[in-house]
């Protein structure tokens, strides 16, 4: 469960202070499917970064599964990210020199899992994401949809409790984008919390809960 209490994040541009997040209170239960919409600069990406522990709020509290994670050290936060959070990005962020299988392997390597166990796990995952025949291709040799599938596989291979997607279909055409959305929803069906940040109304409307943001505040929150 994600609980945000009075989260504020201020950026300074020259002598002007911009409230990217302005006293946000938000609770997301485990297994929810939430979309966050809003125009550019509304703070939706910053919110996702705070939830994903990539960014620290200037004030407020963030409880993840009941534990206050705002005050954790950088190393502890890295561990929480590794164990509980998966990221999916608009531009995929695959490492170009590594093959699909090797990209998926990185989180496993970080946990110190032995090589034999990793191989099994990767084979299973590639199968599940229908990427088996692409295992030894580099990102440059994959289509956009395949790249995003690799990225999602990497994000979920350690079975995080929450999957955070920032414009996951932004670089894909409509049909492929829809397939990726379906894939994310399928993961949500298995119990993973899914939070999607997007401009795209159509994608946002697929979510069971829709949050709209404006100027760092939550405008509407519909179930």
């Amino acid at each position: 469960m994600i609980q945000l209490q009075g989260i504020t994040r201020i950026f300074h541009m020259g002598d002007q202070a911009i409230h990217a997040l302005d006293h946000i209170d938000l609770t997301i239960d485990s297994g929810e499917y939430v979309s966050i919409m809003g125009p550019s600069g509304s703070g939706k990406s910053t919110l996702l970064n705070v939830i994903g522990l990539l960014d620290r709020p200037d004030s407020g509290h963030y409880l993840l599964d009941g534990r206050d994670v705002t005050a954790l050290s950088e190393t502890e936060q890295a561990q929480v990210r590794r164990e509980k959070i998966g990221f999916v990005f608009q531009s995929f962020h695959l490492i170009p020199r590594l093959t699909a299988a090797e990209n998926i392997e990185i989180p496993l390597i970080l946990t110190g899992m032995p090589s034999i166990e990793r191989k099994e796990r990767i084979a299973e995952t590639l199968q599940a994401f229908n990427l088996s025949d692409r295992a030894h291709h580099r990102p440059a040799e994959l289509s956009g949809g395949q790249r995003q599938r690799v990225a999602i596989a990497r994000a979920t291979i350690l079975r995080p409790t929450a999957l955070l997607a920032d414009e996951p279909t932004g670089n894909l055409d409509h049909r492929i984008g829809s397939e990726v959305a379906t894939l994310l929803e399928a993961l949500n069906q298995t119990g993973t919390t899914l939070i999607v940040v997007t401009h795209d109304r159509e994608l946002a409307l697929r979510a069971r809960r829709r949050v709209a943001m404006h100027d760092g505040r939550i405008e509407t929150d519909e179930q």
């Binding site: 994903g52 990210r81 989180p107």
Partner: peptide, 16 residues
């Protein structure tokens, strides 16, 4: 830079 950002996002400690 982007790769380092990604490594951090998926939970790589600074030391690693």
């Amino acid at each position: 830079t982007a790769e380092i950002g990604l490594l951090k996002a998926i939970g790589t400690p600074a030391a690693v």
